[in-house]
């Protein structure tokens, strides 16, 4: 009985230490999380100051919004839940390059249909051949370009093409906040689970203590 009581006390102490460690870690993450959010707001305010009061508001949100971050949850063996974020891979630089190329393509296409009078037949023939080959290449290129709005686009573009650096800083702060939020969610779950475990162990210890007391009492009466 004495050994099991000692074992129960050791388990309780270990669990309590774990609980304290988790709380400390949670507080640490919370501080970082809160300061990053504050940094983000400060950058949004700076962007609003440079762009204008109405330019950074809920009115600018796109009509089609696709999430670029997902959170994956996994239940662990000890009853805890692991959260981790995953960002949808998007190559914004390639998108902008394609846009730029499509704008450049429009120029030569329109020039290609122009006809000039006063040229000899040979010159005209050459030009028609050139036009035909040019049209051939453009018809191949047309299906690639779609003017449909891309719902999965970078949210920065909702606020304009050339946004101030401060808005980009705000975005980067909030991206970090999102990663931290998954860690905090996992920690919160662990804290609650450890608390439950602590309660259970305390109850077990109390039962053991009561049994010991009863045994001692019965021995003294005998």
């Amino acid at each position: 009985m004495g050994v099991s009581k000692l074992k129960s006390s050791v388990l309780l102490d270990e669990e309590l230490l774990r609980f304290m460690e988790l709380l400390e870690l949670l507080e640490e993450k919370r501080t970082a999380f809160n300061s990053l959010i504050e940094q983000g707001w400060f950058s949004i305010s700076k962007a609003r100051y440079s762009m204008g009061n109405k330019q950074v508001s809920a009115l600018q949100y796109a009509s089609e919004i696709e999430p670029l971050v997902h959170v994956h949850t996994r239940t662990l063996d000890n009853g805890g839940v692991d959260f981790h974020t995953e960002r949808v891979q998007q190559n914004y630089s390639n998108d902008t390059e394609q846009d730029a190329r499509s704008v450049e393509d429009i120029g030569p296409q329109e020039e290609g249909v122009r006809r000039r009078k006063g040229q000899d037949n040979r010159g005209l023939k050459d030009m028609m051949e050139k036009d035909a080959s040019h049209f051939g290449s453009t018809t191949n290129a047309v299906p690639h370009r779609k003017s449909e709005p891309n719902p999965g686009q970078d949210p920065l573009k909702w606020f304009g093409i050339l946004v101030p650096q401060s808005l980009k800083q705000a975005q980067s702060s909030f991206k970090q906040v999102l990663e931290l939020s998954a860690e905090i969610a996992a920690l919160q779950t662990s804290v609650i689970n450890t608390r439950q475990e602590l309660k259970r162990l305390m109850k077990d210890k109390r039962i053991l203590e009561e049994k010991v007391l009863e045994e001692m009492h019965s021995k003294t009466t005998d």
């Binding site: 949100y61 971050v69 959170v71």
Partner: peptide
């Protein structure tokens, strides 16, 4: 599979910030 979403209930700046971070979905 696709993961879950992060939802937000907050004032305008909080929502704008998190939406900039890419959590928004319609």
């Amino acid at each position: 599979g696709r993961g879950k979403l992060i939802a937000v209930i907050g004032d305008e700046d909080t929502c704008t910030g998190f939406l900039l971070g890419g959590i928004g979905e319609l």
